[in-house]
């Protein structure tokens, strides 16, 4: 079990560190960094599904017999791009939030938001 599954376990640990950072940290930039860590764990998990012992990169040539599976790699290429796109949008939002609230700490933003709400009376 250990010899055949160690990769999965280590990758799960990696994902969980990322997820923990996303949920428990209040700093928005840190949240986004955590999101990247979480996603990288998932990407590695996909890639590890396609790996074959003794295989090589799925670029066909005459002197190679075993190849790793190309499909997970294609999926993860797409997912990496989606990840960086999300990161860029998240960072742009963080910049705007800093400009209008003066902070990127979620707790402080919420505090200032509560002040807004007292003024205009909308509760959520």
């Amino acid at each position: 079990m250990i010899a055949t599954h160690y990769v999965y376990w280590l990758l799960f640990a990696l994902m969980m560190i990322g997820l923990y950072v996303v949920i428990s940290h209040g700093n928005m930039l840190k949240k986004l960094i955590g999101l990247s860590l979480f996603q990288v764990g998932v990407f590695l998990f996909f890639i590890s599904l396609g790996k074959v012992d003794g295989g090589s990169a799925p670029i066909v040539s005459e002197d190679v017999e075993t190849y790793s599976h190309p499909l997970p790699q294609v999926l993860i290429l797409t997912a990496i791009v989606v990840g960086v796109a999300t990161l860029a949008v998240g960072l742009a939002l963080a910049v705007r939030i800093f400009e209008s609230y003066g902070t990127v700490e979620e707790d402080q933003v919420l505090l200032r938001d509560a002040d807004d709400r007292e003024q205009d009376g909308g509760a959520s």
């Binding site: 990407f43 590695l44 890639i47 590890s48 396609g50 790996k51 074959v52 295989g55 090589s56 990169a57 799925p58 670029i59 190849y67 790793s68 997970p72 790699q73 993860i76 290429l77 990496i80």
Partner: peptide, 8 residues
């Protein structure tokens, strides 16, 4: 690279 995913 180690997992043969050079493009990735």
């Amino acid at each position: 690279v180690l997992l043969d995913a050079v493009d990735v």
